[in-house]
Every structure is written in C-alpha cells, then in structure tokens.
Simulated assay, not measured.
Amino acid sequence: MNKPTAQEVQVLMARYVERVDAGDIEAIVQMYADDATVEDPFGQPPIRGREQIAAFYRQGLGASKVNARLTGPVRASHNGCGAMPFRVEMIWNGQPCALDVIDVMSFDEQGRIRTMQAYWSEVNLSVQAPA
C-alpha cells in the first residue's frame, strides 16, 4: 500500500483541524499511528506513542474550549507529507487569545499521522479583545 496522495493529505489535515475545533480528543488520537511522535511546539522533546499523545491532548485541548480553523490551504507533497497554517482561539490565563500555528505532518500507508511538528512560540500568540 502506498502513502496517501497529495489530495488525501489535504483531506486528512483539514479533518485534523475540524476535530481540534470540535474538541474531539478521541477522534484526534485515532488519527495517529501507534508509534507516532508529536513535537508541539517543535524543538520540545517528542511525545511518543498514542498513550502519551492522548495525555498531551487531554491536558492541553481538554483544559478549555478552543476554536480552530485553517487560515490558508493545506500544502501537500507526493510523499505523504503536508503543512498547514491554522489559528487556534482559546482562553489562556483568563484572557481570550489566538495562536497562529503551522503544523507539518507525515502520514503512514494507512493514512495515520506518523509525525506532527507544530511551529509556534509566544511571538505567534495575540490577546484578543473580549467578544
């Protein structure tokens, strides 16, 4: 079996953002391969395996309601990899904030995420005016 096509990578990565937006941690975790790694933000020690990845999402995403949306098209390659810009809006330290992120992912032959690297830092975080 081959790695996902560029079009399939676009669909998979858009689905990931939809699941983050929905706060569906179990569905997000099911998108990962059993031996996947997450570096969020990139440069941190990798989180390895579904169990640790699930704990990571429960601690972060499970702690507050977030909204997530793509802010540009998913860029996909022909080797089962892609990158996408998106924005996560959340309450952080009691303030409405937005975080602009670029995720880079690689997928296995079953279309599951093998690696996820999230590129962001405090320079990408902005405080939003209360709604």
Score class of each variant (00 low, 15 high):
35 D>N: 09
93 N>Y: 10
24 D>E: 13
57 Y>I: 02
105 M>L: 14
62 G>W: 01
111 G>P: 01
106 S>G: 01
40 D>G: 01
58 R>S: 15
11 V>L: 13
30 Q>W: 00
1 M>L: 12
82 G>Y: 11
125 L>K: 03
6 A>G: 04
77 S>F: 10
94 G>D: 13
36 A>M: 06
42 F>S: 10
130 P>D: 07
41 P>Y: 03
9 V>N: 02
78 H>E: 15
45 P>V: 15
64 S>V: 08
38 V>I: 14
120 W>C: 12
67 N>H: 06
74 V>D: 05
113 I>D: 03
131 A>H: 06
1 M>Y: 00
28 I>V: 11
2 N>S: 14
75 R>L: 14
16 Y>V: 01
11 V>Q: 08
9 V>S: 09
3 K>G: 01
100 D>A: 09
114 R>N: 08
69 R>D: 14
43 G>V: 02
93 N>L: 04
1 M>K: 08
10 Q>D: 10
109 E>Y: 01
51 E>R: 13
52 Q>E: 13
119 Y>C: 05
85 P>W: 03
16 Y>S: 08
38 V>C: 02
23 G>F: 02
110 Q>E: 14
23 G>I: 02
111 G>F: 07
80 G>L: 13
107 F>W: 13
97 C>S: 05
116 M>L: 15
59 Q>W: 02
114 R>V: 04
68 A>C: 07
34 D>S: 06
100 D>V: 00
35 D>F: 01
14 A>D: 09
11 V>K: 09
90 M>Q: 15
129 A>E: 04
90 M>F: 11
7 Q>M: 12
79 N>T: 13
107 F>T: 11
1 M>T: 04
94 G>L: 02
6 A>L: 08
113 I>C: 13
1 M>Q: 12
116 M>E: 07
21 D>E: 04
77 S>I: 05
44 Q>N: 12
130 P>M: 08
6 A>F: 04
34 D>M: 07
35 D>T: 01
79 N>E: 10
17 V>D: 02
81 C>Q: 12
102 I>V: 10
38 V>D: 00
121 S>W: 09
21 D>Y: 00
41 P>S: 11
3 K>E: 01
35 D>H: 05
43 G>A: 08
11 V>W: 00
105 M>R: 11
30 Q>H: 07
108 D>R: 09
73 P>L: 15
53 I>L: 14
47 I>P: 00
120 W>K: 09
8 E>Q: 11
7 Q>V: 06
6 A>D: 00
6 A>T: 03
27 A>L: 03
25 I>A: 03
17 V>Y: 02
101 V>T: 02
127 V>M: 13
128 Q>L: 15
123 V>I: 06
98 A>I: 02
111 G>S: 12
28 I>K: 09
29 V>C: 05
65 K>M: 15
52 Q>S: 07
54 A>E: 14
64 S>R: 14
28 I>H: 08
8 E>N: 11
102 I>L: 10
10 Q>K: 14
100 D>T: 01
119 Y>V: 06
12 L>W: 06
115 T>C: 15
3 K>H: 11
93 N>G: 07
94 G>I: 04
103 D>P: 08
44 Q>M: 00
116 M>D: 04
21 D>V: 03
118 A>Y: 10
